[in-house]
């Protein structure tokens, strides 16, 4: 693994290696519970908590965990934190817990979390691991927030439950339904790819063709 500075550890996961938008990890929650900002944030924070807790524990215990059973041990640690988050949410914000339903428990199988343990926390110091977890967790929250904000604003005309456009707004119900999840993330990814191409073209001196214009094709 390349040597990185602490600030890189922190910032990498936020944008350049954003778990959802770039690495396509944790798509399941990113699509399933992002129909409102509130749900997105709750899910993001719960995941953040699990990531932080398990990274801390893995980094602390890495010397005591034999290599052969490390995956099982990581899963055990993650599952413990997920269960804590599950119970905590149910006790503190029961309505949000009801809205998220089974997807809190499914944080266990979010490969982003296991990936960070495997790739980082098991090899680096406690502080570095925490920085990395904070970075990736923030990136995850940001991605979920973007999705949730878009879907709620278009799909319900509100933000965090506060109406934005007055009574007459016709909500685009589809955006808070399952197809809206797929379409939003798909559009987001296509937008990002378009944006990156634009930047790359600008860097290349604008010689490359605009990708949206396809030449007349054969077959």
């Amino acid at each position: 693994m390349k040597a990185t500075t602490p600030s890189q550890d922190l910032l990498r996961g936020v944008w350049r290696e954003n778990p959802v938008l770039v690495q396509m990890l944790g798509l399941c929650p990113a699509l399933a519970v992002t129909n409102t900002v509130e749900n997105s944030l709750a899910m993001g924070i719960a995941t953040f908590f699990v990531l932080l807790g398990s990274s801390l524990l893995v980094a602390l215990l890495k010397r005591f965990i034999p290599n052969e059973i490390r995956i099982s041990a990581y899963i055990l640690i993650i599952a413990t934190f997920v269960t804590i988050a599950d119970m905590g949410l149910e006790a503190l914000v029961p309505d949000v817990h009801k809205a998220l339903g089974a997807f809190i428990a499914l944080i266990v199988v979010n490969c982003m979390i296991l990936g960070r343990q495997e790739a980082f926390a098991s090899k680096r110091s406690v502080v570095r691991s925490l920085l990395d977890a904070i970075g990736s967790g923030t990136g995850f929250v940001i991605a979920l927030f973007l999705m949730g904000a878009f879907r709620e604003i278009v799909g319900m005309g509100s933000f965090l439950g506060i109406p934005l456009f007055g009574d007459g707004y016709e909500p685009w119900v589809v955006m808070i339904l399952p197809p809206g999840g797929f379409l939003t993330l798909g559009t987001l990814l296509i937008g990002l790819s378009w944006f990156q191409r634009r930047r790359k073209e600008a860097a290349d001196g604008g010689t490359a063709k605009n990708g949206a214009v396809q030449e007349g094709s054969v077959a």
Binding site: M24, L183, L185, G186, L189, S193, G211
Partner: peptide, 10 residues
């Protein structure tokens, strides 16, 4: 621009 995961999601 649309090739890849974006298209799969659409």
């Amino acid at each position: 621009v649309t090739r890849g995961t974006g298209l799969v999601l659409i």
